[in-house]
């Protein structure tokens, strides 16, 4: 993953910047030129909350080379209160305990290293909330 490619994604990936469509209100993350919901072109910036709920998840046992030493790890589609959905690893917990409905907080973490140059690539990972663990 070359550096300019990483740099371009910084606003959404590192700052959780999204866009709320002025036409239909859908929150698009990352922002797009046109809303996939209504094809509207007007939007206002919105920063996503750092809390979310797991929609669906899995535990990866056979990992890609870049994540080989992390397996097994949990990864999920999460939804923030703004209804933005995206993928994130779920960490700091037993991967087998992760499942749909789980409440998580989003924390700034190291995600991967660029294959050859080795620069560090950041983003958000999900961590089960204390209150969710208490409930279950």
């Amino acid at each position: 993953m070359p550096s300019p490619r990483y740099w371009r994604e910084v606003p959404s990936r590192l700052r959780l910047e999204a866009a709320r469509c002025s036409g239909c209100g859908k929150v698009n993350y990352p922002p797009r030129l046109i809303c996939p919901g209504c094809r509207g072109k007007e939007s206002e910036p919105v920063t996503l909350s750092k809390t979310a709920k797991i929609i669906t998840s899995t535990v990866i046992h056979i990992a890609p080379d870049d994540f080989l030493f992390e397996a097994p790890y949990a990864i999920a589609v999460v939804e923030t209160p703004e209804k933005a959905r995206f993928m994130a690893q779920v960490v700091d917990c037993d991967p087998s305990s992760v499942g749909p409905g789980m409440d998580v907080s989003l924390e700034f973490r190291l995600i991967r290293k660029e294959a050859r140059s080795g620069i560090l690539c950041y983003g958000f990972k999900a961590v089960p909330t204390a209150s969710w663990e208490a409930k279950s």
């Binding site: 990352p30 990866i60 990992a63 890609p64 990864i75 993928m87 690893q89 995600i111 991967r112």
Partner: peptide, 10 residues
């Protein structure tokens, strides 16, 4: 690639 594979999905 940017939204899924980046995070380690297969």
């Amino acid at each position: 690639q940017e939204l899924e594979v980046y995070h380690g999905i297969t």
